[in-house]
Amino acid sequence: MSHSRTIGRRTLLGATVGVLAAPAIVQAQAWPSKPVRVVNAYSAGGTADVVCRIYCQALGERLGQSFTVDNKPGAAGTIAAQIVARAPNDGYTILYDATAQSVNPSLFAGKLPYDTQRELLPIAQTMQTPVTLVRNAQFPVKTVPELIALAKSKPGSLDCASTGIGTVQHVSLELLNQKAGIKINHVPYKEMGSVRNDLFAGRIPLLFSNVPGTVALLTSKDVTCMAHTGPKPVEVLPGVPAISEVIPGFETWEWNGLFAPAGTDPALISRLNAEVNAVMKMESVAKRLAELGALTQPNTVVEFTAFREKQIAFFAEMVKSANIRIE
């Protein structure tokens, strides 16, 4: 075969690949040409919903098409996830999900109507924030070392609330029990309103919450934030120490992100990721998220995918070691 003929075939092959790839690139550039449905796995008014709406409003303004939030709460986020897993993979139905996606594969082992890792493709992380440990102001201890000492002196006598079995707040309590060698009872609530009422009234002394939820609580003198689960200081919680200062390596996260159905064109996912990161950097968006305590940082599809995989593995280990089960 002559050198010129080899070059000719290579040129033809390259041209063919270019033609095949072109429609995907054009599709990604043309998107969105109609409104985008964002299926939110959480109820209206909660942290995930507020953050979702901040992003959707900004994305709509930036891209000239509405990003309509469709709240489909229930079953630990699995209702919304299933809707999107079965939706057309054209970029016009995407999922807004959170930390529950990390635990559901192990919490509902073999029972999910979809495969999280195969059928829901990460687009971009929109928020990552530490969990917080909040106390009623009348509770007799103010620090984590004091709490550990009290729990050891009265094993099984202390209660701590969360908003449900298998939540990252619940897992944070179980991790504290394991790492500190204590036993604080988990008291699951169905929704935050009831938890707050009982915390403020002193009927429940402790609550694992998140930074945005805690910022809202601290306007009252009836509660204080004892600690958080991040590796470094949290700006909106000045003076609040990290549990890792007492238990090295202690770290848990609540997070939000966007996902697409399996088969969605990678070029379109990359476009979505770029748009989310652009919105994240907008001064007006960054300010609102910072005021909430919703921590953000630009991230790639690869980075967000790796983060989710690491979180799924962490929760699988915790579900097993703490014997966490849906009752």
Rank of each mutant, 00 (worst) to 15 (best):
Asn299His: 04
Pro88Glu: 10
Val36Gly: 05
Leu176Ala: 05
Asn323Gln: 13
Val17His: 06
Ala100Ser: 14
Ala22Ser: 15
Lys281Met: 08
Gly166Pro: 04
Gln178His: 12
Pro113Thr: 02
Tyr55Val: 08
Cys52Pro: 06
Leu218Ile: 03
Ile204His: 06
Leu121Gln: 14
Val234Leu: 07
Ile148Glu: 00
Met1Asn: 10
Met1Arg: 11
Phe314Gly: 05
His186Asp: 11
Gly74Leu: 04
Leu218Gly: 00
Pro231His: 06
Lys221Pro: 13
Leu12Trp: 03
Glu317Val: 09
Ser194Arg: 15
Met280Gln: 14
Ala81Ile: 03
Pro205Arg: 10
Ile326Pro: 14
Ser102Met: 08
Val171Ser: 14
Pro266Cys: 02
Gly77Lys: 02
Arg308Cys: 15
Thr143Phe: 04
Thr116Tyr: 11
Ala227Glu: 10
Val301Cys: 08
Phe259Thr: 04
Pro241Leu: 05
Val17Asn: 05
Val134Thr: 15
Asn277Gly: 10
Thr300Cys: 08
Leu158Ser: 08
Leu272Met: 15
Leu121Ile: 15
Ile79Thr: 13
Ile204Asn: 07
Leu295Asn: 09
Ser244Lys: 09
Ala137Trp: 03
Ala48Pro: 09
Val144Asp: 03
Asp70Cys: 02
Lys72Cys: 13
Arg62Leu: 11
Lys111His: 14
Val319Met: 06
Gln65Thr: 02
Val19Ile: 15
Thr167Arg: 11
Ser270Ala: 12
Phe139Gln: 00
Ile7Arg: 13
Pro266Tyr: 05
Gly45Met: 08
Leu112Met: 02
Ala262Phe: 11
Gln82His: 12
Val39Ala: 03
Ala98Lys: 10
Gly77Thr: 01
Arg271Lys: 10
Met282Asn: 11
Val223Gly: 00
Val211Ala: 07
Thr68Leu: 14
Glu174Ile: 03
Ala124Gln: 09
Leu207Cys: 12
Pro73Thr: 01
Val26Thr: 08
Ser284Tyr: 04
Thr99Pro: 07
Val38Glu: 00
Thr229Pro: 13
Lys221Arg: 12
Phe314Gln: 13
Lys111Gly: 04
Cys160Ile: 00
Ser106Trp: 06
Tyr96Met: 10
Gly60Asn: 03
Asp222Pro: 05
Ala22His: 08
Cys52Val: 10
Asp115Gln: 14
Ala48Val: 15
Gly110Asn: 09
Lys142Trp: 05
Asp97Trp: 11
Leu63Val: 05
Ala30Cys: 10
Gly239Ile: 02
Val223Lys: 07
Arg62His: 07
Ala109Val: 05
Cys52Lys: 13
Arg308Ser: 15
Pro88Trp: 03
